[in-house]
């Protein structure tokens, strides 16, 4: 259980699931959820390398910055999605093709 490869495999599976969500979901909010999964798997990798590389605290700092970036990304993305819904009355990412209506 307590090995680097275990955590790397968990993160790899999580990353694949997030990627699957991003490429198959058509709802903008659901695509965002896939992106959150991908960011979390990256964080898991950072912390696993931090622990098994000799408890290096720089990995924790990077994970902290990833979390900050995820919060920023979620706020801006949801503002954009709400704007798209106002203009197109749908958030299906396949239907949103025109730059203006």
């Amino acid at each position: 259980m307590d090995s680097l490869n275990t955590y790397l495999f968990i993160a790899a599976i999580l990353f694949s699931l997030g990627l699957f969500g991003v490429i198959t979901r058509r709802n903008g909010v659901a695509v965002l959820m896939g992106i959150e999964l991908i960011l979390n798997s990256a964080n898991l990798n950072f912390l696993a390398f931090a622990k098994f590389g000799g408890m290096n605290m720089s990995g924790h700092i990077f994970a902290l910055f990833v979390i900050i970036m995820a919060a920023v990304e979620a706020a801006v993305a949801l503002a954009i999605i709400i704007n798209i819904f106002k203009n197109f009355h749908t958030i299906n990412v396949d239907d949103v093709q025109g730059l203006r209506q």
Binding site: L32, E36, I67, A70, L78, I81, I91
Partner: peptide, 20 residues
């Protein structure tokens, strides 16, 4: 993670679902 993701981002996502 609990404070920002669960308390912030997830609530934002649910807001997004409700508003759209």
């Amino acid at each position: 993670q609990v404070v920002i993701y669960v308390g912030g981002i997830l609530v934002l996502i649910i807001f997004g679902i409700m508003l759209t």
